[in-house]
Write a protein that binds this DNA or RNA. Sequence first.
DNA 1: CTGAAAGCGCTAACAA
DNA 2: TTGTTAGCGCTTTCAG
Lengths: 324, 324
Amino acid sequence: MSDVARAAGVSSATVSYVLSGKRPVTEETRQAVHAAIDRLGFTLNPVARTLRTGRSLMIALIVPDIANPFYALLARSLQNEVRARGYHVVVCNTEARRDEEQAFLQEALQQRVAGVVMTPFRLAANAFDVFRGAAIPVVVSADTPFGDVDLVTPDADDAVSAALTHVADTGRRRVGVVAGPRDATGGDPRLKRIRQHAATAGLSITEEHVVHGEHTREAGAKGFERLMQTRRPPEAILCVNDVTAVGAMDTAERLGLDIPGDVALVGHDDIDFAALVRPRLTTIRYPAGAVGRAAAHLLLEQIDGRTHQRRVSVKADFVARASV
Amino acid sequence: MSDVARAAGVSSATVSYVLSGKRPVTEETRQAVHAAIDRLGFTLNPVARTLRTGRSLMIALIVPDIANPFYALLARSLQNEVRARGYHVVVCNTEARRDEEQAFLQEALQQRVAGVVMTPFRLAANAFDVFRGAAIPVVVSADTPFGDVDLVTPDADDAVSAALTHVADTGRRRVGVVAGPRDATGGDPRLKRIRQHAATAGLSITEEHVVHGEHTREAGAKGFERLMQTRRPPEAILCVNDVTAVGAMDTAERLGLDIPGDVALVGHDDIDFAALVRPRLTTIRYPAGAVGRAAAHLLLEQIDGRTHQRRVSVKADFVARASV
DNA sequence: CTGAAAGCGCTAACAA
DNA sequence: TTGTTAGCGCTTTCAG
C-alpha cells in the first residue's frame, strides 16, 4: 500500500481513505490512487486490516454436521447472502459435542470473526457472554431461545398440530417419538411441542414411547428399533428430523415392517430427499434456505450496528406424503 | 503476549519460542511462561501470526455446491482430517461458474490461506500458477489432471467397465449419457471414460444420445427428458452424478416412465441417498469421505514441505442396485 | 539460552 | 482535504 502511495504521490493514509471512503478525497487524488492501484495490481491485505480493526471477514457457521442436508443447505444459503458483503463462511462440525462446540467458539473468538451462526446442542446457556463482551454478533438457529442472543426459530405450532391431527385422523392413537439427545441444553423443544399438541389431537405419548439419541441416521435406526420393541409399539412415530426418520426406515426395512402399514412415520425439516425415499416421507417442513437467509440478515444487521430484531421465526408447515 | 512476558519476567521473544518450540528454552523459564499464560488466560492471536508469517490457518474448499451430498461429505471429512492440526475449512460455492471460481481463488490468495482444495469446472488450466508462485499448496479433486497441481482422482475404469457390462448383460444396446457442461475445462472426463468402455461392452452411444448440462438435479431432469424425446430413445442412461440421476428420476416419474422397465439408469458417486430412492439407484461409487482424506493428506504433506505425491487415486466401484 | 527490535500492512487518531 | 505516526500482536534476525 505504501508502494501505491508513493506511485500516486500521496500518503498511505490517503490510499486507505480512497479505498474505504471514510473520508472525503478530491476526485483528482482519487483518480491518481486508482491509477496507481491498477498499474501495480495492488489488492488490500485483509489480514492486516483484521489485525488492525479486530474484525475479520469470516463468519463461523457452527453446526453438528454439514453432511446433514439441512445444514448443507443452510450453509449454502448463508454464504449466498453474505458473499456480496465480502464475507466468507467457515464451516465447523461439532458432531453435537460440547467440547467441540466450545472449542470452535473459542477459535472463532481468537480469529476475530465478523460473526457466528450456530446451532448449539450441549453448550452452557451463558456460552455467548464472551461474544457480547467482544461485541461479536451471534445468531443462534434453534427451536428454542438460547441465552441472550438473536434467534432464528421455527414457527411450528400449526404444522405440528396439523401433523398430529393427520395422524389421529388415520385412526392411530399411540404415538412414539424419536427425540434428540436427553442431555441437550434445554432438552428437546421439538419433543416438547409434540407433547403439547398430542393431547389436543387425542393422541397419547407414554414415557416408554419416547427415546432419545443424536440427530443421526444411526440414532434414528436404533431409536425406531427400541420403540418397536416395546410391549405395545406405537402406531405412529415422529422423528426429530428427516435424517433420523431415514434411519427409522432402515430399521423398518431390516425388520420387515411396513410403513405406513405397520407404523406411520413423520419427519422434520423436509430435506430434498424426504420426497424421494419410499414411502415418501410425511414431514414438517422447516426450510433451510429461509433459515440461512434469516440468520444472514440478523447477523448483517448486528454487524451494521442497526437495532436488530432479537428474533425471527420461520414458518414451518406440514407436508403430507405417504408415510402416514 | 507482552503482558505474559512481563508477568513471567522474560522477553516476548521467549514467550513466542516457548509456544512454538522453535528454540531451546530452559525448563525453568518454560514453567514460568506457562504459569503466566495460565494466570492471564492468554491465547495466541492467530491473525497477528498470519500477518507476520504470511500463512493463515484457513483452508479454502472451493466446490460447485455444498448442498450436493458428495461435497458436503467431502467437506466434513476434510475438516476432520485437518482439524487436529489447527486448520479450519472455509467453504466456497462456485455454482461451477468461472467468475466465482476465479474470485474465490483470488480471495484465498489475499487471505493467505494455508491451502486450497478445489474441484474446478471452468477455470483456465493455468489458474493455479499464482499459487505456485506464492507457495500456497493446492490440491485438485477432479476426474482428470488439471494444471500442474496435486490431484485426487478416481480410479474408475474397472467400475465403469463393470457398469457397462452389466447394462449390456441386461440386453440393452443403445446408451445415453447425461454429461457435465459442454464448456467445462477439459470437457467431461466421465463421459470420455464411458465412451471409451462402451464399445468393449458392445454398446453404442450416438451423438444425439449425449446431452450436456450442469451437475444439478434440474439439469438432470432436463437432460433425461431430452434424451427420452429422441426418435429412438436410449435403453440405458448413465448420469454424470447421482444428483443428476435423481433429477432424471423426477422426469421419469412425471412422464410415467418406468425405471428400469422403460429405461435403465446409472449414477455416479453413490451419495447416501442413492440407496434410498426408488428404484434404488445403481451407481458407480466414488467415496467422498476417502476423497476428503486423500486431499487432506496431500495438502498437509505440501504444507509440511515434504516431497508430495503428485497424485492419489481413489478406487471407484460399481454398485448394482435396482435401476438397471 | 535469552533479549532487543524491526516489521508484516493496515487504520485511525491527531495535526496541519 | 491531506499527511504523520502509532500501534494492532506476533515472529525472527541479530546481538549478546
